[in-house]
Amino acid sequence: MNQAILLSSNADNIDFMIHGIFSLHVFGQEVWITTSHACILIIMALMVVFAIVANRKIKKAKEVPDGFQNVIELIVEMLDGMVESTMGKWAPRFVNYISTIFIFILMSNISGLLGLRPPTADYGTTLALALITFCMIRFNKAKHQSAKDIWVGMCSPLPPWLPLWTPINIISEIAVPISLSLRLFANVLSGTVIMALVYGLLRIIAIGWPAVLHVYFDLFSGAIQTYVFCMLTMTYVTQACDTDE
C-alpha cells in the first residue's frame, strides 16, 4: 500500500475534506458554496417539513394520542424535561432555542449515516453555534446583572479596586466559545476521519462490519456531544441569568 497516501491531502481514495460545489462572486470576493452548506440545507428542509407536519397533526390533536402524535409528544416532553432540569425557572424563555439547536446538532451529527459529510465537522458551523451561545451569555449578563456586579465578577478572586486578575478573567470568557466549538468540531471530525480511513484504506475488506464503528462514532458520540453542547450552553446562560449567587 502506498505509504505516502496519508500525507497527500488529495489522495483519491481517502476523502474527508470539504468540497466546493460552485463559487459565487460577491463584491469582488470568491465565495464557495460547499458540501457543508448543502448538508445544512438538507437538514433544514427535513426540520421544516417535520415542523409543518407536526403542526398540522397537533392542531387536530386527539385526547388519546396515536402513532405520530405520540412521537411528537415524546420528543417535546424529553426536551422540555432536559431544559427544565438544568435551567429551573429560566427554562420557559430558552426552551425553544435549546430544543432547536439540540435537534439541529443531533441531525447534523448522525447525517454521516446517510453518506453526507456532517456539517458539524466544518469549523464554520460549530463556531457560529458557539458564538450564538457567547452572545446569549453576554446579553443575559448585561440584562440581569448591574455593571458593578459584572466588574466585581471580572476581578473575581481579588477585591474590585485591584483589577490585576481582570485580563485572565477576560481570556477565560473568550475561551468559552472557542472550547465549545472546538469540542464539537473535533469529536465529529475525528469520527469522520476514522471512517474515511477505514473505508479508504481497507476498501474491499470494509464490508458490513464498519456498521459497528458507525454506531459508535456517529450515533453514540454524536448524541453525547449534542447533549454536552446543549448542557454547557444551558449552564452558562443560567449562570449569567442568576443574580443572587
Binding site: 468540531f185 476521519v193 447533549y227 454536552v228
Partner: peptide, 25 residues
C-alpha cells in the same frame, strides 16, 4: 458520560493539531 465527554476535549485538541500538521501543512 458528561464528565468524560468534557475531559475528552484536551485529547481532541491534540488530534486537531495533528490533523492540521498532516493535511493543512
Amino acid at each position: 458520560l458528561l464528565g468524560q465527554a468534557v475531559a475528552e476535549t484536551t485529547g481532541l485538541y491534540g488530534l486537531v493539531v495533528a490533523l492540521l500538521l498532516l493535511f493543512v501543512h
